[in-house]
Simulated scan of single mutants.
Amino acid sequence: MSTIFEEIKACIIDGDDELAVELAEKVIAEKINPVDAVHQGFIKGIEEVGAAWTSGEAFLPDVMMAADAMKAGMDVLEPALANCDKGDASDNKGSIVIGTVKGDIHDIGKNILSALLTAAKFKVYDIGTDQSPENFVKKADEVGAYVLAASALLTTTMKSQKEIVDYLEENNIRDKYYLIVGGGPTSQHWADEIGADGWAETTEEAIKVISNLMVNKPIED
């Protein structure tokens, strides 16, 4: 069984999304524990890529390809994972809903952060691009998350991050969620201006910000 985990790890490092899908389907077909496949295969691969990127041995395209491969494989495993026991809560640092805001279809940064958060043992629910405030909250309610991570890659869509804050306030649920924002045109000043709970310029900073937010509330599955 360790052989398939090594194959999964290698395909993530290589950024081979087709093989990632094929191996994820094999995990399901052979009734291999999908949680083991994630932790011993997918996460091991993305951790190695992340470490190489941090040390300067890998470059952004390498991380992007690895993130895409991981997402492709995880999409296949998601139904099987949903049917598994939650396991030891100590293995889960907390749940996060991440997405690109309404009007914006860019997802490179979001996908990388999703993968690295997963590697850091957070439970990540990626709702994709062009997402409304309602969709962020709906998913958070569904999975019991209280951290929302909203990405905007265009100056014209930054206002959609503020719309999330406005939506939370208008529905009297602002105190239920932490909102972290990011993306090329954003800044700490912008986050402060709209009333977000955090901002990060890099994925490493985002993980630190989210980790700090998590300590203020109990971990939720």
Rank of each mutant, 00 (worst) to 15 (best):
Cys11Ser: 15
Lys102Pro: 05
Ala51His: 09
Ala80Cys: 07
Ala51Pro: 00
Ala72Ile: 01
Asp62Ile: 00
Val35His: 02
Val63Gly: 00
Asp91Trp: 11
Ile98Asp: 05
Asp75Leu: 10
His39Pro: 00
Lys86Leu: 13
Ala89Thr: 06
Ile98Trp: 08
Leu60Met: 13
Ala82Lys: 15
Asp36Asn: 13
Val97Thr: 08
Pro79His: 09
Ala89Asn: 06
Pro61Met: 03
Ile43His: 02
Ile12Ser: 03
Glu6Ile: 10
Ile32His: 07
Val63Leu: 15
Gly103Asp: 05
Met64Pro: 09
Lys93Cys: 06
Lys44Trp: 00
Thr100Arg: 07
Val38Asp: 06
Phe42Val: 08
His39Tyr: 13
Phe5Lys: 05
Met74Val: 05
Leu60Phe: 10
Gly87Ile: 04
Lys44Gln: 14
Val27Leu: 13
Lys93Gly: 08
Leu23Tyr: 12
Asp68Arg: 14
Leu81Thr: 04
Ile8Asn: 03
His106Phe: 09
Asp85Lys: 12
Gly50Cys: 01
Gln40Ala: 06
Ala37Pro: 01
Met70Glu: 10
Cys84Asp: 04
Asp68Thr: 14
Gly73Met: 06
Gly45Phe: 10
Ile105Leu: 15
Val27His: 08
Ala58Leu: 07
Ser90Ile: 13
Leu81Gln: 03
Met65Asp: 10
Asp36Trp: 00
Asn83Phe: 07
Asn92Gln: 10
Ser95Pro: 05
Asp85Ile: 06
Ala80Met: 07
Lys86Tyr: 14
Gly87Gln: 10
Asp88Leu: 13
Val38Glu: 05
Asp91Met: 13
Lys9Trp: 07
Val97Asp: 10
Val35Cys: 01
Ala67Gln: 09
Met74Phe: 07
Asp17Val: 07
Ile98Asn: 05
His106Cys: 02
Ala69Lys: 01
Ala51Leu: 11
Trp53Arg: 02
Lys86Met: 12
Ala52Ile: 02
Ile105Trp: 11
Glu48Gln: 14
Gly73Asp: 03
Lys71Glu: 14
Gly15Phe: 08
Glu25Ser: 04
Ile28Cys: 08
Leu81Val: 03
Lys71Pro: 00
Lys102Phe: 12
Val27Cys: 09
Ile13Met: 08
Glu57Phe: 03
Ile8Glu: 01
Gly15Met: 08
Asp16Asn: 12
Trp53Leu: 11
Val76His: 09
Asp88Pro: 05
His106Thr: 02
Ala37Thr: 02
Val76Gln: 06
Val49Leu: 04
Val101Cys: 05
